[in-house]
Nucleic acid binder design. Sequence first.
DNA 1: CGCGATTTGTGCACGTCTTCACAAGCGCCT
DNA 2: AGGCGCTTGTGAAGACGTGCACAAATCGCG
Lengths: 230, 230
Amino acid sequence: MARLPEYLRALHNLAETGHETVSSEGLANAAGVNSAKLRKDLSQLGSYGTRGVGYDVGLLIDQIEYVLGLTQRRAVALVGVGNLGHALAGYDGFASRGFRIAALFDADQERVGEEINGLVVQHIDDLPRVAAEEAIAIGVIATPATAAQRVADQLVAVGVTSILNFAPCVLSVPEGVDVRKVDLAIELQILSFHEHRKASLTALPAAGGSALTALPGGLAVTESQEAIGT
Amino acid sequence: MARLPEYLRALHNLAETGHETVSSEGLANAAGVNSAKLRKDLSQLGSYGTRGVGYDVGLLIDQIEYVLGLTQRRAVALVGVGNLGHALAGYDGFASRGFRIAALFDADQERVGEEINGLVVQHIDDLPRVAAEEAIAIGVIATPATAAQRVADQLVAVGVTSILNFAPCVLSVPEGVDVRKVDLAIELQILSFHEHRKASLTALPAAGGSALTALPGGLAVTESQEAIGT
DNA sequence: CGCGATTTGTGCACGTCTTCACAAGCGCCT
DNA sequence: AGGCGCTTGTGAAGACGTGCACAAATCGCG
Ligand SMILES: NC(=O)c1ccc[n+]([C@@H]2O[C@H](COP(=O)([O-])OP(=O)(O)OC[C@H]3O[C@@H](n4cnc5c(N)ncnc54)[C@H](O)[C@@H]3O)[C@@H](O)[C@H]2O)c1
Ligand SMILES: NC(=O)c1ccc[n+]([C@@H]2O[C@H](COP(=O)([O-])OP(=O)(O)OC[C@H]3O[C@@H](n4cnc5c(N)ncnc54)[C@H](O)[C@@H]3O)[C@@H](O)[C@H]2O)c1
């Protein structure tokens, strides 16, 4: 389930604030989901909640981390140390959530050799050598879209089976390789769509004349986080 | 539909490479989705495809941009010009996809006054004044999680009804305000989960002994981009 | 002018996800 | 020891998204 990481984050928050147990309702609130949904998710893990009490925070963290495969700290390779790549390389949120940035790569000789956060940027052609030394589990692509497919192929060639892609393009990969995409412009466009829909609802549909008068109503968007009570 | 932006990007690619029309199958390939799904999505727009020919690329772009509300170039306010905020402020992908970064804010006096990409960082307390001058449609939060809720409240107070949140926390906003969240660690954890699942399937379930021997099988994840043929 | 190739639009069935509602279980207090 | 309140786990119903398969429509060509 894609919600488990969210639960995990909420649980860590609770653990830090001293809670030993948490009810499904409390955790659901902290994670921003329905409590029934949360219970069903947790029951899928074969989880051990105690009726009348709730869930043991520490135990649940262990459970979820095990299922997510976070018991081993996976090595991440970041390719493309540009604008975005720099920010990612300097981000400590990866290390604190079960990952280790193992190597940085770029194709630009200007950047190779640069040190960021204790790691030296290496040339992308060295990827096979580095991959032989470290078991790279996940590749992150932060190159321009034009280079993304090539980089993906290179990552797959050295045995990487999970890729996080920030470039705005579709990647072709062999079966068995997982790709997740993050595209900020798409997120903004979805928000823009909602803005437009909201505006169309308040202002009466008096505007007409164009061939494009169909109101954008009744279109659903996979919810990211709907409005929740104040 | 959350897939419309993806179609739009693929259409722009096609337009640049000289295509005037495109079949549902062609566009579906470019966007990485099923062709039937794409046709159903497009029919929801009241779209005008021509049977036997396909869709007019230019017309379809106009259609989708209208529905997404991209006909007006929306103003975006970015709050938190740190590690990540810098990368976002310097990103040209927003401008080219229908948005305009209208203002940068930070709470750190050290950063206020700094110029990034032609924009001067302003203090977050100036938000009300700036919002009065420009109609800010979307707020982007790139502050630490501890400050995110406060910033969200400030954005809502000046009339922002759409927020893109990069901080790893759940935001409480009044009804009518849309929040979308981007959490990179969650993306990595989902990939890690798949890695773990793949490993559990190849290696026979011979490992046992711990109380946590339940194999993480049968759990579904909302697909981001599944493996597609080479 | 007619026919075939091609492609859209959609009815239908299926599987998945979501939510409600409630019985079963647990602990605490008397 | 017993009852009471609270919480989990889950059955069932409904909503929703997905994909197949095919009829209807359009174009090009003979
Ligand atoms: N900057 C942002 O905030 C932002 C936001 C959303 C998406 N993106 C996307 O992320 C990607 C990177 O953005 P950016 O702003 O960092 O761009 P950038 O141009 O600053 O950085 C790209 C880096 O990739 C390197 N590179 C190019 N080809 C390579 C190859 N074949 N192998 C290895 N490295 C290679 C370049 O040398 C450069 O250092 C782009 O696809 C962009 O659309 C960026
Ligand atoms: N850097 C990354 O690659 C990355 C990746 C994923 C998520 N994030 C998240 O994005 C957020 C920002 O990350 P970062 O690395 O840029 O952190 P950062 O510490 O470099 O930057 C945070 C900025 O926010 C400013 N700020 C703090 N409180 C503020 C307030 N009340 N109002 C306005 N500005 C305020 C700070 O002055 C600072 O400049 C964090 O929540 C982080 O978890 C970052």
